[in-house]
Design a protein around this nucleic acid. Sequence first.
DNA 1: CGGTAATCGAGACGGTACGTCATGTCTTACA
DNA 2: TGTAAGACATGACGTACCGTCTCGATTACCG
Lengths: 199, 199, 199, 199
Amino acid sequence: MNTAPAAGRRGRPRSEAARRAILEAAAQLMLEAGPGEVSMDAVAERAGVSKATIYRWWPSKERLALDALYETWAEVQRPVPDTGSLHGDLLALIRPWVRLLASRPFGRVMAALLAAVQSDQEFAEEYRERFVEPRRDQARDIFARAIARGEIPADTEMEVALDLLYGPVYHRLLHGHQPLNDAFVRALVDGVVAAVGAG
Amino acid sequence: MNTAPAAGRRGRPRSEAARRAILEAAAQLMLEAGPGEVSMDAVAERAGVSKATIYRWWPSKERLALDALYETWAEVQRPVPDTGSLHGDLLALIRPWVRLLASRPFGRVMAALLAAVQSDQEFAEEYRERFVEPRRDQARDIFARAIARGEIPADTEMEVALDLLYGPVYHRLLHGHQPLNDAFVRALVDGVVAAVGAG
Amino acid sequence: MNTAPAAGRRGRPRSEAARRAILEAAAQLMLEAGPGEVSMDAVAERAGVSKATIYRWWPSKERLALDALYETWAEVQRPVPDTGSLHGDLLALIRPWVRLLASRPFGRVMAALLAAVQSDQEFAEEYRERFVEPRRDQARDIFARAIARGEIPADTEMEVALDLLYGPVYHRLLHGHQPLNDAFVRALVDGVVAAVGAG
Amino acid sequence: MNTAPAAGRRGRPRSEAARRAILEAAAQLMLEAGPGEVSMDAVAERAGVSKATIYRWWPSKERLALDALYETWAEVQRPVPDTGSLHGDLLALIRPWVRLLASRPFGRVMAALLAAVQSDQEFAEEYRERFVEPRRDQARDIFARAIARGEIPADTEMEVALDLLYGPVYHRLLHGHQPLNDAFVRALVDGVVAAVGAG
DNA sequence: CGGTAATCGAGACGGTACGTCATGTCTTACA
DNA sequence: TGTAAGACATGACGTACCGTCTCGATTACCG
């Protein structure tokens, strides 16, 4: 996506202004109107860009959405401070992320991306690589520190622990059956800590 | 959807054959090709029915998918046996359901339904009422029995416990980052049991 | 159309109220909204009647229009007085008819009927039998009286004379390029009288 | 209709091939099956063109029919030779036109256009401008020459004379009560010439 | 007077076409 | 070569009407 700045060398260089305008237009439309209401025509018009230009750099609406969302999303992908305890680390990791999720209608965009994940293998991989694994890696580091500290057993089922942490968040985000608030975060972290045996 | 069998009494009664044909065609197409590839025209043709008849009873493709999926889904909504322990009960609840989920491409349909949930309030409620809450109720009963038995504290954060149980399953179903198998189910149930303090 | 009151004898007799309601509803809708806007569903609803009842007695929308229009139309099909001259007779025949045509949006209905005439042989015959020939017969009588009087030659090309009389009226009604008023009627009758040689 | 070739200059130019294919397909279908049997889908398929392309340039089936018919129709709109007499001129004008009308099922298309004329003011004007007035202009020239020659009075009621000429032709075309043949043309022209006083 | 039969209202049904919309490709002219 | 403009083929959308069909409820007549 939006990768090579200009394949070879000759010819007019890629317009950076167009690239930014497209991503901004897409992000705005996604979050304002929801992904269902966003068409490539609409993005092109809002960005003052031709459709051909979009398709030259992004192969589909979903790939565009991926890029458009990435910066906002990445905002909370910074390294997590070491608070000295598993409980503190997880709280420091999850709370700001959940606050971001609750602050804007990310559910709509997430669901649209997940729909694309189901039927596009290549997209699925890029999605996981950029949105899922980085966050799991952060939590993996935290659990590894807890093992090093002796807080939790060394044979902890890491992948399941990660699912216990992130699964409930996505669940509430997507299903909306219960609120995404700080109380939920506290109880969730309590549960995860207990689950991995750091009573 | 598909509810009112014939408001008053007069007029030609609704064709039960058409209703069944539509639901079957929809279910088949959804699970074979994925909801993105299914058009109302295709459902109508496969069911030997006119589009108008579909739209008379279902306002959208998603509402139709909801109904079409319901029967298959409901197959594992039977009452859960009392095994005598929280661990055994949860295993008896979750294992057959996860096996069903893993047996067919439900992820695609689920993601499509979730996309609709994000932008249709009414749909969201019906979705939760028919797909989410019945399963949560089953687990609520199990946790209530465990409290009665004294296995877990009476002040257990029930809703979060339910999310710890179901969130990871949906997470793996939708993101596909890890398999949905029996080993996962065992580890998940172990984790949940530990989380609610029935060490 | 609407013919046999009840084929044999047994059974519930045809509802005269329904028949009248249908014809009135059709006539109103035709002349108010134009035939293009009239649907059988609309006629049925306006008449408080079921579609099946309409189709039992009229095979098509056009046949219904034919009947619906007939009474209004027939209003000026009364016998023409003998004024003693060809000119006076034609004026007495044409003027009231043109006034009727100009008084309401008959053009729309006529054009719709003519469209049906082009593609339905049977309809064409009934249309001519009930709408065209009776008026031509009236004019034929007038020309015959003029021949008897010695006003015009006995070998007058009668059919062409009838077309010279009626053609211009339909022409203005349907094309709307010039008004349908009394001045037109006078000039038309003058022209026809001159054409058949009664200078 | 089909007018603006490309507003400014930029952008892909209109496909002339598509334009011609659409008009030809429409003309063929109209005259073969009659306008009632022609659907936009059928025109699109026959022309190998998308429906959207048709609707981009023509707002309705009738406007398309107008254009589709125009070229065939225009074939006899060539200037009329001066034969030296009103009778000869009118014959030279009317005979080839009536032969064209009689040669193909124009009645169906005409009736459909007239139906549109009744309910679309804008269409009515374009119809008259392109189909009615050019022919009337030809006849107007002929009558003017006859006046210049002293064949007919200078105060001849021109518009009525034109209706006496064309009205009967349309009448027979649309009602089909009498044939459109050369004998009719001769008698018609005789009648018109007599009517305007060139006995 | 009870049975038979044609009618009626309501309204669901299989079709067919409608006119619109979004996708992704393309063809120009300009930069 | 990259771009804005915008026309294009494709194909689904949701709606509207058509003419047919089942219902249950109403009348008549006829035995």
